[in-house]
Structures are given as structure tokens and as C-alpha cells.
């Protein structure tokens, strides 16, 4: 079955991203397809490549990146939610005249239409938030 996943909360503060990760991983391991994981609201912070968690804890952004690499997972960060929270990819940083960008490997920034498309194309949309 084809799933879409929506993550509405940022890393560490809430369990939402962890639950979404465990669900996504379990679904992939069972042979299901994940059409897209969409990060919205504070969920956009999961895509930060500047996270530096303690060594003995999970690295939430890297964990998503690794899953993306292994399964060619489409990790999409909402551009509107990301911009107002200071999450920019290289192109967007250039366009906005900012001196840095901070999107981790495997994630890419795109519009809210990608969430609606995930709702249309997936057989199930599962929402994780607070």
C-alpha cells in the first residue's frame, strides 16, 4: 500500500517525528511504499543539518536522511513554513540574500501543493503531531 506521512512537530521537543520515523521504517520494512514524508509547522526543523545532539542520543535529521538514502524516500519541507522559521536551502538563501543555508541531505524544500498531492496520490495519509 502507498502511504503519505505528515510530520507537524520539530525534533526532540515532541515525539511526533520519532513516531513518524518508526512508523515509516516499519511500513517500508513490511514492503509498503511511502509516497512522501511532508514536514510542516515546526516539523520543518527536522530538516536542519545543524543539529548537534549528544553522542548517546539519536540524531533525528541524520536518521531521516539515512532512511531516505536507503529507500529513496521523498522528504519534503514546506517552503512557507520553512522560510518564516529560518530554514533555507542553498537556492533560497541566495535568493533571499542570506549568508547561510541549513537543509540536511535527503530533504528538499517545496510548496504546500506537495502535501495535497501526497493526499491525492497516497492510499493513506497518516498525520503525526502534537
Amino acid at each position: 500500500m502507498k502511504f503519505g506521512i505528515l510530520v507537524n512537530e520539530g525534533p526532540y521537543q515532541h515525539q511526533a517525528s520519532d513516531s513518524a520515523y518508526q512508523f515509516t521504517k516499519a511500513a517500508l520494512e513490511k514492503g509498503h511504499e511511502i509516497f512522501r514524508v511532508f514536514f510542516y509547522h515546526d516539523g520543518v526543523y527536522n530538516a536542519s543539518r545543524l543539529l548537534v545532539p549528544p553522542q548517546d542520543d539519536r540524531h533525528i535529521a541524520n536518521r531521516w536522511s539515512a532512511l531516505s538514502k536507503e529507500y529513496k524516500l521523498d522528504l519534503v519541507v514546506c517552503i512557507a513554513a520553512a522560510q518564516r522559521r529560518g530554514m533555507l536551502d542553498e537556492n533560497e538563501a541566495k535568493r533571499q540574500g542570506k549568508d547561510a543555508h541549513n537543509i540536511a541531505e535527503g530533504f528538499h524544500i517545496s510548496g504546500l501543493g506537495q502535501l495535497i498531492e501526497a493526499g491525492i496520490q497516497s492510499e493513506r495519509l497518516v498525520v503525526f503531531g502534537d
Partner: peptide, 15 residues
């Protein structure tokens, strides 16, 4: 507010 933004974008998809 951000929910409303999704509704507005979603409206363009004729669902």
C-alpha cells in the same frame, strides 16, 4: 493560521 494556508493551496487542486 498554517492550517488555513493548506486549505487555500489545496483549493487549487479541485478536490
Amino acid at each position: 493560521l498554517e492550517s488555513l494556508e493548506v486549505v487555500l493551496i489545496g483549493a487549487a487542486f479541485d478536490q
